[in-house]
Design a protein around this nucleic acid. Structure first.
Lengths: 192, 192
DNA sequence: CAATTCCATTAAGGTATCTTAAGAACGCTA
DNA sequence: TAGCGTTCTTAAGATACCTTAATGGAATTG
């Protein structure tokens, strides 16, 4: 189960056998049932989280009670309310399991220890964060320059594996449209 | 002029006098006239860039020729097409001076040398990127959950110093609305 | 397996924002 | 200081997307 995590790290930076053991020991495992929360708004987010199995969503709820999904995560992805983690303020986001899931997480204190002991861990998270930043940048541009239909088509071609694990209204929330509108978009595509 | 850069680094991580000299030597200075380009789509982005003076914009142009501003940068900010820098692929964004500007930049090869020589530089860019990621995350949520008027009000209260350096149609592009609509938004606020 | 809740579809009317077009104000530069 | 390009404003008609509401099918639970 930890092979996925260690493999994920080794893809980007070299680590020794001893270091990978130390990393393994520093993480803990969390099992989640469908709809169970890993983090709720108001709580403190003290862990960096890696999805070993399943599918989760990161979302916020606005003043009107509407849910806005910022990110999905599946096996092999990192997922967190990074703002809450970094600032150590109460979270503004929720993280919830969409399907039964297994998450491997490390406490901030342990991670900071790793940063001091293993230079490559700093580099690993620098690169991971840069990649995450780039993906978010692309998404922002897409949201600004593309129609909902274009965004939908891009999502399903890019993340077919995610689309198959989530209900359609969640995808609508991620795309920033109402479920009804996503339904008519799909109808229009069908009718073409 | 480099004091701002060194200060910017020291705000986040400790570095020695020798290291700060090495950092200084590794950067180069670029002077830009208003409207001059620091990077154009199709070019390679081989530098990490820090704004010493002035105001610049990072934007893309979509298939219809419309400009979408992803980020402004002013004195003391880092600004780059991170995707092009990291992947070493041709840039998809433009970086252009809005006012006469001075940029301090470091070539990727030199920066990678610094990463190997100075552990804290890895950490510095990890934290910087995390902060940038968090800011972009907030912006994404705001774009999804707020009206154009709310986004405008938030921008001017948060970035008054930027608003004063840029024409209104550029702010419209950043907010993702037409200049005409931003104008009517302002009129509505006035009339309230 | 029946009941109930959840989810996707469809349609109608409403709202936010866009597009186009025109003119007014502003700020350079000759 | 006149002239010219740039930026901002206003308004009208068009469009994308939302809200509400109703229906039927699918999934979950007792």
């Amino acid at each position: 189960m930890y092979d996925l995590l260690i493999g994920n790290i080794k893809e980007l930076v070299p680590i020794t056998e001893d270091e990978s053991k130390l990393i393994h020991k520093s993480f803990e495992t969390v099992h989640l049932k469908k709809k169970q929360f890993l983090l709720q708004s108001g709580e403190y987010s003290n862990h960096m989280r890696f999805i070993s199995q399943g599918c989760l969503k990161l979302y916020s709820i606005d003043e009107l009670g509407a849910e806005h999904i910022l990110q999905f995560g599946i096996s092999g992805w990192w997922l967190n309310d990074l703002y809450a983690y970094l600032t150590q303020k109460p979270a503004t986001f929720f993280i919830q399991a969409i399907t039964d899931s297994i998450v491997i997480q490390i406490h901030r204190d342990k991670l900071n220890e790793l940063f001091d002991k293993i230079h490559m861990m700093d580099r690993f998270f620098r690169i991971k964060t840069q990649n995450g930043y780039v993906a978010l940048m692309e998404r922002t541009i897409n949201n600004m320059s593309q129609s909902a239909e274009q965004r939908y088509l891009e999502f399903i071609s890019r993340y077919r594996d995610i689309e198959q694990q989530i209900p359609q209204y969640m995808l609508a929330s991620y795309l920033g449209v109402s479920p009804e509108h996503l339904s008519t978009i799909r109808k229009n595509i069908r009718d073409q």
